[in-house]
Design a protein around this nucleic acid. Structure first.
Length: 238
DNA sequence: AACTTCGTCAACCGCACAATC
DNA sequence: TGATTGTGCGGTTGACGAAGT
């Protein structure tokens, strides 16, 4: 198997993304989509590798990303899915609309694994990050590496349109109501239609017309609202 | 006030699989 | 059918800010 020579070329930038880079990437994906991540940075004029662009888009710039604290329900879902699936973050993320595998992975390592085998009542809200004592830190013996032999996800984001198939494996552990399933089924379509909806002014109430720009109102983190507003305005803020 | 330790999270790395040639 | 390329995944790292001493 040949490893992709990603990021090995000289001159490719690494590290945190700048506003200008975000703007370029968002504008390019807006206009051309992201059929070929490898070719995208060159075509868009970014000094980044395709993997970096893809990661940035998926984990931060994608418009349907839900940011901010995880709800108690989301945390519970992660705990249940992790117990069933192990460290298969993408499979877990597939059941949590708007959340990314990277984000879930971070939340697990920083918060949730501390809660394994701990009484539920200790954590009444999602804002528990400073409530923990160091002595509480104890990973579950079954929490990690249990899935190392089955690294691939049977439930991937590509399965969202076939819920009967993708959810069967975990159906005994979690329940997904009809509304949640509808959200899952709509995710791919939402992604495809997102930009056209923005610029046609037909978004379903999630975006507010802001004198030439658009602001994602309900679920985005404050700074994400700023970035997204600035990016979609394209008015050269910063 | 200065320094150290800890927690968080964005981003990178390397591997594996799927698709294509 | 094997080689190559593209993509997705999970593990890990490192920068940064907060908290502690």
């Amino acid at each position: 198997m040949v490893r992709a020579p990603c990021c090995e070329r000289m001159g490719l930038k690494k590290g945190p993304w700048t506003y200008e880079e975000d703007q370029i990437l968002v504008n390019y994906v807006n206009m051309h989509g992201h059929d070929n991540w490898r070719a995208l940075p060159k075509l868009a004029g970014l000094l980044r590798c395709g993997k970096s662009c893809r990661l940035r888009w998926i984990n931060y710039l994608r418009p349907d990303i839900k940011r901010g604290n995880f709800t108690r329900e989301e945390e519970q879902t992660i705990l249940e899915l992790h117990a069933a699936l192990g460290n298969r973050w993408s499979a877990i993320a597939a059941q949590l609309p708007g959340r990314t595998d990277n984000e879930i992975k971070n939340v697990w390592h920083t918060h949730l694994k501390k809660r394994v085998n701990k009484p539920e009542k200790q954590y009444g809200s999602s804002n528990f990050q400073h409530e923990m004592k160091e002595e509480d830190i104890e990973a579950s013996p079954s929490s990690s590496s249990s899935s190392s032999s089955s690294k691939r996800s049977e439930i991937s984001s590509g399965d969202l349109n076939s819920p009967n198939h993708s959810c069967s494996e975990i159906s005994s552990v979690i329940t997904i109501d009809k509304d949640d399933m509808q959200v899952l089924e709509n995710l791919e379509q939402m992604d495809d239609d997102f930009w056209s909806e923005i610029f046609s002014g037909e978004s379903s109430g999630e975006f507010t017309d802001m004198e030439g720009g658009y602001r994602y109102k309900p679920s985005m983190h404050d700074d994400m609202q700023f970035w997204f507003y600035a990016l979609t305005r394209g008015d050269g803020l910063l």
